[in-house]
Design a protein around this nucleic acid. Structure first.
Lengths: 193, 193
DNA sequence: CGATTTTTTGAATCATATCAACGTACGTGG
DNA sequence: CCACGTACGTTGATATGATTCAAAAAATCG
């Protein structure tokens, strides 16, 4: 329980046993079966989830029913709709499990309280948010400046075994492509090397 | 001096005079002429800039010489290459002024120190980073799920007078389009309404 | 094993990029 | 302050690349 979370925390901000016990009081565990929702469109997001095991996706659905995956989270990563969490407005996204998953949850209110109580947690929250921003900025850079082949290559580098774990049409959705196009991109890549 | 920064700060985290004086010690002012660099590719980014007045862009240049604008910052927004700032690695981006600009600067080291000294500043830094993340996530959502017309419309909503202030080819670059395509998108939009 | 979902392939269509030319606005030096 | 040269935006023709729709092949699940 919490192994990965604690390990992750300690790597960024080393904790004493005492500090960890305080923090742990604010955390809860949750298991999600594959295809189960963590958040549904229209609900207010009150949680931040850390993935101990498994994989999540955050996506929206356009009028015509197409799913657009905005974000994946695998082991060691956080997932939330930060906008809904902060604003208190209903989310336009869904979050669900791509695989059976184990999550460490903290509510927004618990997190706010804990940030006041624990300088270490405060620092951790700051670092994690910064890192999430950096990751997104990197992806935005790829999207506006790289070819599909390069973007696919980069995705594989960033999420080494995502291809084995996630159906290809979801990867296409994440890249903003149709499944057919991604299939052809992959074919092009395997031919030319 | 610092008017907008202070105002912005107070809106998120109200400050006493005393607290503000402490924080102000860590800030510096800088004016940039149009086209002047704040950061050049290959240099390590050590600063976070707040735009008091004017507009900045962050962009990279691909081998063939094309500029790709990743981010704009106008009055009331922050600008930095967070990755380079955090990692200490040389930046792959340039930051320069689109208009004559006035900036409030803080170095990474000053900011770290100040975050330890001032809980209010700590909170402000956290909120700003969160907000920057939210903004990027929203843009990522648009990029993967909306039409060019919708994205252009959204850009105008987010940056109301950007069209008047920023040359059109830069907006095209920001959207990941050629200038010709953006010109045609605009034409389509003006015809159909 | 059979049923369903996912991936691949093909052909036609649509959207964007590219290349070239033109008119206009802009700023820069004389 | 004017004139020139450079930037910028628009338009057209063509080429390239992605989507769409349909169908078959492959993989997955119960």
């Amino acid at each position: 329980m919490y192994e990965r979370y604690l390990h992750h925390f300690n790597e960024k901000v080393p904790l004493t046993q005492e500090e960890w016990e305080l923090i742990q009081n604010y955390l809860t565990l949750k298991k999600l079966r594959k295809r189960q929702y963590l958040l549904q469109e229209g609900d207010v997001c009150k949680l931040v989830a850390f993935v101990e095991k498994g994989a999540l996706r955050l996506y929206n659905v356009s009028e015509n029913g197409t799913e657009h995956i905005v974000l994946f989270a695998v082991e060691g990563q956080f997932m939330t709709d930060l906008y809904s969490t902060f604003s208190g407005e209903p989310s336009i996204y869904n979050i669900d499990a791509i695989e059976d998953s184990e999550l460490v949850l903290i509510t927004r209110t618990a997190s706010d309280e804990l940030r006041k109580l624990s300088p270490k947690y405060q620092e951790f929250a700051f670092l994690e948010t910064s890192e999430a921003y950096i990751q997104l900025a990197k992806r935005m850079t790829s999207v506006i400046s790289l070819s599909l082949e390069q973007r696919y290559q980069e995705l594989i580098t960033n999420y080494p075994n995502i291809v084995q774990r996630v159906p290809q049409h979801m990867i296409a959705s994440y890249m903003g492509l149709t499944p057919e196009t991604l299939s052809r991109v992959r074919k092009r890549m395997s031919n030319t090397k």
